[in-house]
């Protein structure tokens, strides 16, 4: 039973997150500069820096600051952003939902496009169609998202087409149509890269399976090709694809940093760029922890799903 894996996986996940938070904390402390230098800018004098550090609690020993932050997080208090001077929890919660919407819609679109294409490419291996799909995926992988974003804006957001808003965000509650319109371009940019990747994984996973003994057996016993593909091949090939999809969610969490900045989309990516640049350590820690949790959880889900598709993996 796949669920038997769960406790051990969750335990490993928590250990990873604990290690992550220590690493992030140490790294941010190794960087020169702190929130006080960021807040004061060219107004920084030694006296002003000292006064501000005292007010922000930055004059406390680093381990104490870390313990304080960790104690807060364990009790559900994400602390106060040192540079925004606001509780970090609500800011992050809102940004998290925005980013998850972006990521999940992207994953869905990418899967809907990539999996059929991957299967077709594998089944028609060596055909002109396969070649076209492969080439397109190479192009997709090769375009960096910081190029793709502005290109999409110039093509689809300005006259003569002007089909979508160039950037920004509208809350779903305020206007569902506006919400969707604002998602189109950032999702498209993220989907292009992800689709290429996912499609190639599906294709090679499918090829492995199509060459396996049991598919040959299934064919030899006279099963219709459709049944062979759907029941025997795809089900097995999807295991790999799902694992890749989960890893891609982590990859997406990296890509959204750039895409959110280009499209002025208020998500976690823009927040962490801001937090690092301004040495807002509680915010950096919180966002890193949230992104880490997403990554761990996605892998967990993928493992379980994989185990359900392939019962051999569920054996302890």
């Amino acid at each position: 039973m796949a669920l038997a894996l769960l406790p051990r996986r969750i335990f490993y996940g928590l250990v990873s997150l604990a290690i992550l938070s220590v690493i992030i904390f140490v790294c941010t402390h190794l960087l020169p500069g702190d929130a006080a230098t960021a807040i004061l800018g060219e107004g920084a004098t030694p006296a002003a820096l000292a006064a501000l550090r005292a007010r922000l609690g930055l004059d406390q020993p680093a381990p104490l600051q870390f313990a304080h932050w960790l104690g807060g997080v364990l009790t559900g208090d994400f602390g106060v952003s040192t540079t925004l001077n606001q509780p970090a929890g609500p800011i992050i919660a809102e940004r998290f939902l925005n980013s998850m919407a972006l990521a999940l819609v992207t994953i869905f679109c990418a899967a809907a496009i990539a999996i059929p294409l991957g299967v077709v490419a594998a089944v028609r291996r060596g055909s002109r169609l396969d070649g076209t799909i492969l080439t397109a995926s190479y192009v997709g992988i090769s375009i960096p998202d910081f190029v793709l974003g502005p290109v999409l804006i110039l093509l689809f957001a300005v006259p003569p087409l002007a089909l979508f808003p160039s950037s920004g965000f509208v809350a779903f509650a305020a206007s569902p149509a506006g919400w969707i319109a604002h998602l189109v371009l950032p999702v498209a940019a993220l989907t292009v890269v992800l689709t290429a990747h996912l499609m190639r994984q599906t294709r090679s996973g499918m090829l492995d399976v199509l060459n396996s003994d049991y598919v040959r057996t299934a064919r030899l016993k006279g099963l219709p090709e459709r049944l062979v593909l759907w029941r025997h091949a795809l089900r097995n090939a999807l295991g790999t694809t799902l694992a890749v999809l989960a890893l891609d969610l982590g990859y997406l969490m990296g890509s959204i940093v750039i895409i959110e900045e280009i499209f002025a989309y208020p998500g976690l990516g823009r927040l962490i760029v801001y937090a690092v640049a301004n040495r807002d350590i509680p915010l950096v820690e919180d966002v890193a922890l949230v992104i880490g949790t997403v990554y761990v959880a996605a892998n967990l889900v993928a493992d379980i799903a994989h185990a359900m598709l392939d019962p051999r993996l569920a054996r302890p």
Binding site: P150, I153, L154, P159, A162, G168, I262, F263
Partner: peptide, 18 residues
């Protein structure tokens, strides 16, 4: 007041009258 941190998006937003 809207913060648009990418200049391409900023110009496009003006052109679109967003």
């Amino acid at each position: 007041l809207r913060v648009l941190p990418d200049t391409t998006a900023q110009v496009a937003a003006l052109e679109n009258r967003e």
